[in-house]
């Protein structure tokens, strides 16, 4: 690849620019396409229509508006921690996207333990949310922060356990390796579609997507925000641009998590290798580095459509139902899923 010939600083610059695009572009797309437009259409209204054609410039208008908002920090708040909290959430999103591969050579980092890294880093945002709730010196914020922490750790487990099924099938923790093993694989000797793990790991996929929904605190699992009882949960005291950072990070996280879901279960950037007679990752043509990201974005939009569809359709779960669902349904199901996958893997 061309980037390999560049000096290290130029490579790093390219990577961080690519990473910024990979965080902000999905976030903007999801907010405009789903939050502004799809939600409006599902509720029989038009949504933003004034800024640009069909309101497509609304995002820029919003950012301009938020930039001018007064930054209010409550008197009693722990000010330094209060300011750090949104930054931690944003940093967590950025370092999570660092592990996502977008093409055979278009990756930011190529960790051997990529799955492990992704799962570890995805829980850093809990810290930001917890300290945001704590430092605000507000009862709503504190309750929201604690609920968020309780929920995120409860749903972290089924997510981790659901991924193990994929790791057993692929035999590697490297995300690039998981993509390759899906697209180079075959189902009962037929390799026309590769072997996307959504077919063999359908239970794992369901558990993973439900956990992602909860990790992102999207609606059936939005107890931490719960606007009808907690005002805005841990974000209650945030105003102006600090609030917007939380907001951007939330939707950027939707994008990153669905990107990771598409890598684990839908074949990532790849197309079945048999179509073009590729055998390994080295024999892939160079144009996949351009087509790969487009395939990824398509899969991301499909999966985040499902996340948002569920968000706009279902009522909120109660806190006890939410915890019960994670501990008594999802975790046992995913443990059984691991064992069944392992037995089948050893038998065949």
């Amino acid at each position: 690849m061309v980037a390999a010939d560049l000096p290290y600083w130029a490579q790093s610059l390219l990577r961080v620019l690519g990473g910024t695009v990979a965080v902000l572009l999905p976030a903007g797309t999801i907010v405009y396409l789903f939050l502004f437009k799809m939600m409006s259409f599902m509720q029989s209204r038009l949504g933003p229509m004034e800024a640009g054609p069909y309101g497509s410039m609304q995002l820029f208008a919003e950012v301009g508006k938020w930039l001018q908002k007064e930054d209010i920090q409550p008197e009693l708040a722990d000010k330094r921690i209060f300011k750090i909290a949104p930054l931690i959430v944003l940093v967590s999103t950025f370092i999570l996207v660092a592990v996502v591969p977008f093409g055979p050579d278009a990756w930011f980092t190529n960790f051997e333990t990529g799955v492990f890294y992704a799962l570890a880093v995805s829980s850093v945002s809990v810290l930001g949310i917890l300290i945001a709730g704590w430092s605000s010196a507000n009862k709503y914020s504190l309750l929201g922060g604690l609920r968020a922490a309780g929920q995120l750790i409860a749903y972290e487990l089924p997510m981790v356990l659901a991924v193990i099924g994929v790791v057993i099938q692929a035999g590697t923790l490297n995300l690039q390796g998981i993509v390759v093993s899906q697209n180079a694989g075959s189902m009962f000797g037929w390799d026309g579609l590769g072997n996307p793990y959504i077919l063999t790991q359908f239970v794992g996929f369901l558990v993973f997507m439900i956990s992602v929904q909860a990790e992102l605190t999207q609606t059936p699992f939005d107890m931490p925000i719960a606007e009808s009882e907690l005002v805005s949960g841990y974000m209650t005291e945030y105003s102006g641009f600090r609030f917007l950072i939380f907001f951007i990070a939330e939707f950027a996280n939707v994008g990153v998590f669905t990107l990771i879901a598409s890598i684990l279960f839908l074949g990532g950037w790849g197309i079945p290798f048999s179509w073009f007679g590729w055998t390994s990752v080295d024999s892939i043509d160079n144009w996949m580095n351009v087509v790969g990201p487009l395939i990824m974005v398509t899969k991301m939009i499909v999966l985040s459509f499902i996340v948002m569809w569920v968000r706009f359709s279902y009522p909120r779960l109660r806190e006890d139902q939410l915890q019960r669902f994670a501990w008594k349904v999802l975790i046992p199901v995913s443990l059984v899923n691991i064992m069944i996958t392992a037995v089948l893997k050893v038998m065949f």
Partner: peptide, 17 residues
């Protein structure tokens, strides 16, 4: 180097914010 890239990503997040 891969881990250093992660540091750069954290830095760009802070820089942007």
């Amino acid at each position: 180097r891969d881990y250093l890239t992660v540091v750069w990503f954290a830095a760009i997040a802070l820089l942007l914010a």
